[in-house]
Design a protein around this nucleic acid. Structure first.
Lengths: 221, 221
DNA sequence: AATACTTTTGAAAAAATTTTAAAAAAATAT
DNA sequence: ATATTTTTTTAAAATTTTTTCAAAAGTATT
C-alpha cells in the first residue's frame, strides 16, 4: 500500500484529497506547510507527495528543493488557476507533475497512480480480482468472467468506489458525497438508478451489490 | 543502453537534462566542471558527452581538447544565448554539435540520438511492436502492418506518448500537459482533433485508441 | 392483511461530451 | 516573399450519459 503525504495550508483542501486518497486505497498523512512537510519526509517513507505551491512559512518549490536533497520522492504540485508557475522551474526543482486548482479529485488520483506506475515505485498495477470480477484501476477496465464490460463514467466511478470500499456498509449519503463530490440533497433517485445500471453491467454477479435497506449499499468482494 | 555524461556547473541544468535523458532510456552521470569531466571520461566509457562551455576550473572547449587526446567520444556543447562562441573553434576542438541555451530538452535528446546513430555507437533501439503496429522511437518512425506512416510532429509526439503509456487511462488534462508542455485550460478541442487525425493515420487500428468518456483516452497495446 | 415507507424500474427529458469538418492562424519550407 | 504544411479554433452534428419522474415492487411494522 502506497503512502501519500498531502501538503496544503487549507484544511478543507487537505480533507478532500485525504478522503479520495483513502478510498483509492492509499495511506495518507497531512502537513500544513513546507517546513512541516520537509520534516515529515525526513522521518517517514512516503511514496509520493502532493503539495500546494502557495503556502506560508515555506512555499512548495522551496520545500521541494529541500526534500530532494535527502530523498528522491515523486512530487505533484498544486497551483491555483492563474497562479504563475513555470514548467521549467518545476523541472529544475524536480517536480513530477502539476495539477491546477480547482482540480477534480479523480483527476488527481489518476496522476498519482500514473506516477507511481511510471516510477515503478509500485511496479504492480492497481488491480482487484475476486470471484469472476476483475477491476484494472490503472487502465480503467472492468472484466466479468474475463470479458470486458463497458461502463459509463459515473458507472465506473461508482463501481470503483464500491470496490475500493468492499465489504463496508456505505450509506447513500456517503456514496453520493464521495462519488458525486458534492451533495445533492435531492430526493431524487439518481443513486438508485445508477445502482440499477451497474447491477445490470455486473450480470450474474449483480447480487454482489447488496441493498442495505434504510442505509445504503455494500459491495461484497 | 547508451551512457551519457552531463557536464554543467549549474545543478538545475544538469537535473533537467538528466531527467529527460532517463526518460528517453539513457543512463546518465554528471560532472560539475571540466576537470572532473576529463577525469570521469578517463575512467568510464560514455557514449556521448553533453557539456556546457562556460564553466569554472576548466571550460568546455579546453576539456574537450583534453578528452580528445585519449578518447574519441562525441561531444555536444551547450552555450548560453548570446554567449560568444565560434563554430570554427568548435570544429577544431572536435565538437560534434551545438545547442543554445535555453534549449528544448526534446531537441537536445533528438540530437543526442542523431549523433549516436551517426557515429554508430549503436545502442539497442527503442522499439515497440505489437499486433500490426510498430513504433521506432529512436528513428521516429511508425509502421502499420509493415508500411511506413507519415505523421506530423505533433501527431508523432502524441502517439509516442500514448504508446509509452499504453494500457493506462490518460486524462485529457494529463495528455495536454505532458504532450503540449503547458496547460491550456481552455475549452478548445485541440486534443480531440489530433486524436481524430491520429486515428486516421492508424487506419484499421484506429480502435486501439479508446475514448474514455469523461476522462480521456487509452492506447491499447 | 393493511399501512407506511423504501427501493427498483423503465422511459423520457435534459445535459454533457466527443466527433467532425472546415476555416483561420501559425509555422516551415521553397 | 510565397507556397505549403501543420496546428489551432470554431461551430454544428452525433453520440452518450445523467437526471428526473412516476409507477411498480418490495419490506417492515402494526
Amino acid at each position: 500500500m502506497s503512502k501519500i503525504l498531502i501538503v496544503d495550508d487549507e484544511e478543507h483542501i487537505r480533507q478532500i484529497i485525504l478522503k479520495y486518497a483513502k478510498f483509492e486505497g492509499y495511506e495518507a498523512e497531512e502537513a500544513s506547510n513546507g517546513i512541516q512537510a520537509v520534516e515529515m519526509c525526513r522521518q517517514n517513507n512516503y511514496d509520493i507527495v502532493i503539495m500546494d505551491i502557495m503556502m506560508p512559512e515555506l512555499d512548495g518549490f522551496s520545500a521541494c528543493v529541500k526534500i530532494r536533497k535527502f530523498k528522491n520522492i515523486p512530487i505533484i504540485m498544486l497551483s491555483a488557476r492563474g497562479e504563475e508557475y513555470d514548467r521549467i522551474h518545476g523541472f529544475e526543482t524536480g517536480v513530477d507533475d502539476y495539477v491546477v486548482k480547482p482540480f477534480s479529485p479523480r483527476e488527481l488520483m489518476l496522476r498519482v497512480s500514473a506516477i507511481l506506475n511510471r516510477t515503478g515505485a509500485l511496479e504492480k498495477k492497481d488491480i482487484y480480482e475476486n470471484n469472476g470480477i476483475k477491476v484494472d484501476f490503472t487502465g480503467r477496465i472492468v472484466y466479468i468472467d474475463g470479458n470486458r464490460v463497458d461502463m459509463s463514467p459515473k458507472e465506473y466511478d461508482l463501481f470503483f468506489y464500491m470496490v475500493k470500499n468492499k465489504n463496508i456498509a456505505l450509506s447513500r449519503d456517503k456514496i453520493i458525497t464521495d462519488v458525486w463530490g458534492y451533495d445533492f440533497y435531492g430526493i431524487d433517485r439518481t443513486l438508485d438508478t445508477h445502482i440499477k445500471i451497474l447491477r445490470k453491467s455486473l450480470g450474474r454477479y449483480s447480487g454482489r451489490i447488496v441493498t442495505l435497506r434504510g442505509v445504503g449499499y455494500r459491495f461484497e468482494g
